[in-house]
């Protein structure tokens, strides 16, 4: 099973390049629109997305089939009639989709938008949360 990839690579050496090219294209396009940070602890996971200049009613968060999907629309707020000197801010629709680990409780999701950063917090399933066990004194 482990030999599968190298064999394919020899047969079609450009498949790897093509695959990587496509992956880079997607990564770069997504990152430029909404880069993220994932922080994990034993209690849960916190995902922060940079989405500056987008009001909360233009952002949609959906959990479906074990995936967290964040999408929305960033409006171009350059007034009509203005002449653009320079612009490299992303605009238009954006979307990112993350596969959730089975240990995450999808019902525990909480999302806050503050200062252009969307923070999505999810807890681990209660039965997987760390528990402290008290020791009884011997009777």
């Amino acid at each position: 099973m482990r030999c599968e990839f190298p064999i394919m690579a020899v047969r079609d050496p450009f498949a790897a390049v093509r695959r990587d090219f496509e992956r880079q294209m997607q990564n770069k396009a997504h990152r430029s629109a909404m880069p993220l940070t994932i922080q994990e602890s034993e209690n849960g996971v916190e995902i922060a997305f940079d989405i500056p200049g987008v009001p909360e009613d233009k952002i949609e968060i959906v959990i479906h089939e074990g995936c967290l999907q964040v999408s929305g629309e960033r409006a171009v707020n350059i007034p009509e009639g203005a002449s653009v000197v320079f612009n490299n801010r992303p605009a238009g629709s954006f979307q990112r989709s993350l596969k959730l680990d089975d240990s995450i409780d999808p019902d525990s999701v909480d999302a806050v938008l503050n200062n252009g950063v969307l923070t999505v917090t999810m807890k681990r399933r209660p039965e997987l949360q760390p528990r402290k066990v008290a020791i009884r004194p011997a009777t």
Partner: peptide, 20 residues
């Protein structure tokens, strides 16, 4: 990231600084 645009009476510079 920046956008810079010019209107009749002013220039406007918008700069993305999320989380700052």
């Amino acid at each position: 990231r920046l956008s810079v645009y010019e209107l009749d009476d002013r220039y406007v510079i918008e700069c993305d600084l999320p989380g700052v």
